[in-house]
Write a protein that binds this DNA or RNA. Structure first.
Lengths: 194, 194
DNA sequence: TTTTATTGATTGATCAGTCAATTAAAAATA
DNA sequence: TATTTTTAATTGACTGATCAATCAATAAAA
């Protein structure tokens, strides 16, 4: 029962299915058939719309990054002080939508894959740079440039580390305690450099 | 040209080859043939000594963990104050031997794999607990228990985050700057809680 | 002669990717 | 409006490649 204008719907469904599948498996070792099955279509159709598995994975990563970017821009719009900007960046990274097991697992899997794929590496580099510049835009007013650079690096690494730990479901930090940890780091450094 | 007592030699060579191969590929998607080839034997022999690929990977992870443990015990033996113990833990994690691209890539790959394999997950949990208790053994004398717990969590997350960033070869923190970052975090918190 | 070390060849399963065929909607034409 | 033609959506069946795992055979040491 073919219908019209299916392409955007199918693409979206396939990308969502990809995130779900990766999240459940915990790695990119997910077959096209599994993804397509979850999206309710045949694997042939997935190939029809995305060409190769690689492109589906890349589209998925782009989708995740773009969602994060959207949330970030929205949160930053409401932040009027430097301090508020930094807190906004932290909050978005641990928001309901971003700090979910599926999303995190996908992140981690893409991190690993990036070591093989230069295109994925480029995507992640864009994200890292954006995170850094967002942090810096808040921190520069609050301390010396070099201190800000260093702190931004520390916060970014801390966020990544908390993501990994969450993925392992081990010491599972929940969102609030993760935010508290990063905010405490930030607060302590601010008090020190004040 | 069969020789005697080859088993330990072969096992060691295969494990080393596994780390190398994973490090180069950047993931656990490495064939038994590739590993065996690097070790200078046939894939059949790798199966002969390890049974299944899974067990070779597990043995490899155990090897990495045990090396880290050895280094850690050695470094801690020389640390006589609480403060020195914490610094020792940090130093070992970023030591020449541990903070190498191959080792890091292997770490990351195992982190991902751990989401699938409960046995790997157990291994990593042991490591995480050991890291935590090592950190605590140094921190408890220096501040209140709850503060120490929180700081240990933060340091551990920071270490993981710096590992990930190193794996991506992006903002490539070198060992010294990574140590400086963690030590700065620690120092700031100590000055604050003092 | 038994045990250990070793491999080439093979098997069986899994998958990404292709293709020809089918169905129905859209567009064009009568 | 009724028809033919074109385009879009969709799949089942297939192909080719890759790879883990097995096994029978060989060679040398004990």
């Amino acid at each position: 029962m073919p219908k019209i204008g299916m392409e955007p719907l199918r693409r979206k469904a396939l990308i969502d299915a990809t995130i779900l599948a990766i999240g459940e498996r915990g790695s990119l070792d997910v077959t096209m058939s599994e993804i397509a099955g979850r999206a309710g279509v045949s694997s042939a159709l997935a190939h029809h719309y995305f060409g190769a598995k690689d492109e589906l994975l890349q589209a998925t990563m782009r989708h995740i990054l773009s969602e994060l970017g959207k949330d970030m821009r929205f949160a930053l719009r409401a932040a009027d002080t430097g301090r508020a900007r930094v807190s906004a960046v932290i909050a978005v990274n641990f928001s309901e939508k971003q700090f979910r097991p599926e999303t995190i697992a996908a992140w981690l899997a893409f991190y690993v894959e990036a070591q093989k794929s230069s295109r994925l590496r480029r995507l992640l580099r864009v994200y890292a740079r954006r995170l850094h510049s967002n942090l810096m835009s808040g921190l520069t007013g609050l301390m010396a440039q070099t201190d800000a650079e260093r702190l931004a690096e520390g916060i970014a690494a801390l966020i990544d580390g908390l993501y990994i730990r969450r993925a392992l479901k081990d010491g599972t930090p929940n969102a609030e305690s993760a935010i508290a940890l990063v905010e405490d780091y930030l607060g302590t450094k601010l008090r020190q450099t004040r």
